[in-house]
């Protein structure tokens, strides 16, 4: 499918069987930018409709997990951190939930939008993008809690806290790259729906969210360094709390993986989306 050739006033759209690689349709995404905003706004508005606690859920999730971690890891497991453990866990959990909810919601997004996809044309990538954008609102709410915890423990943000948004964006890109691939796969193979939450759970434990990188035994170091979320989480913690270090290698793995996932995901998505309406 290719759109081109603009005459003076009127565009001619040529519809033909697709061949080879096609672009990801950034032009169309731009033309439909208002739709992307409406979808994002819908996701935000609908998420906590008809719930008693409403947006408090965005805060409760990381908060309650932090309490469990504090009891299990800190008190029972005796993992110690250079900064108060609750603050240590809470700050990274906020980011982790942004990432993992993003992956979860995006991978289900296309199938959840099946009625739209079979009935109307719009850039399919917008339903994948909107949960990532909408997730930022949840992250901001959870971040308020983190800010409260920092104040409680008397932690002033260091200068590098200005870099925090970059790490959030990196986590968002990582989730988007994965989401592009997983959502498209989920259209054909619903196995994804069962695999994703499970894998994310394992991934949480493989990532230094609940423990510092220094607690990882030597024989697991390679695995730890290859985990693309390590650089994101450690970098974010370093930026926000000034705790730990940023290893160039870890950060490089994270940025490299995010780029590969984004580009590869977009290409795969562009190829797969031709058949969405027929297969979904």
């Amino acid at each position: 499918m290719s759109a081109a050739a603009t005459t003076e006033k009127q565009q001619t759209l040529v519809i033909r069987p697709p061949s080879g690689f096609s672009g990801i349709g950034l032009g169309d995404l731009w033309r439909f930018r208002e739709l992307l905003l409406f979808l994002t706004w819908r996701d935000i508005k609908v998420r906590y409709k008809q719930t008693l606690l409403g947006a408090a859920w965005a805060v409760l999730q990381p908060f309650l997990t932090m309490i469990v971690f504090t009891v299990v890891i800190n008190h029972i497991g005796r993992v110690h951190t250079p900064i108060p453990y609750p603050l240590f866990a809470l700050s990274t959990l906020a980011l982790w939930y942004y990432f993992s909810n993003g992956v979860n919601l995006t991978s289900a997004s296309l199938v959840g939008s099946a009625p739209l996809i079979t009935k109307v044309y719009f850039p399919r990538v917008s339903v994948v993008l909107s949960p990532i954008l909408a997730g930022l609102v949840d992250f901001c709410l959870a971040f308020l809690l983190v800010a409260g915890a920092m104040a409680y423990y008397g932690f002033g943000p260091p200068l590098q806290a200005l870099l925090v948004p970059l790490f959030v964006v990196l986590a968002g890109f990582m989730a988007l790259g994965l989401g592009l691939v997983l959502s498209a796969l989920n259209v054909s193979y619903r196995d994804i729906r069962y695999a994703v939450p499970f894998v994310l759970q394992l991934w949480l434990w493989a990532t230094p969210v609940a423990y510092p990188g220094s607690a990882v035994p030597a024989r697991f170091q390679l695995l730890y360094k290859l985990n693309p979320m390590t650089g994101v989480v450690e970098g974010y913690r370093w930026a926000l709390l000034g705790s730990g270090h940023v290893h160039a290698l870890n950060l490089g793995v994270s940025i490299g993986t995010a780029l590969v996932l984004l580009v590869g995901g977009a290409l795969y998505f562009a190829r797969a989306e031709r058949a969405f309406a027929d297969v979904i």
Binding site: M1, Q10, Q11, L13, I15, R16, P17, Y121, R274, A277
Partner: peptide, 19 residues
């Protein structure tokens, strides 16, 4: 096909104007 929801297997269509 004409509203770009699905792609054709063969042939071609030219559409002039917004759909």
């Amino acid at each position: 096909i004409l509203s770009r929801i699905t792609v054709p297997t063969t042939g071609e269509a030219r559409i002039r104007g917004s759909v």
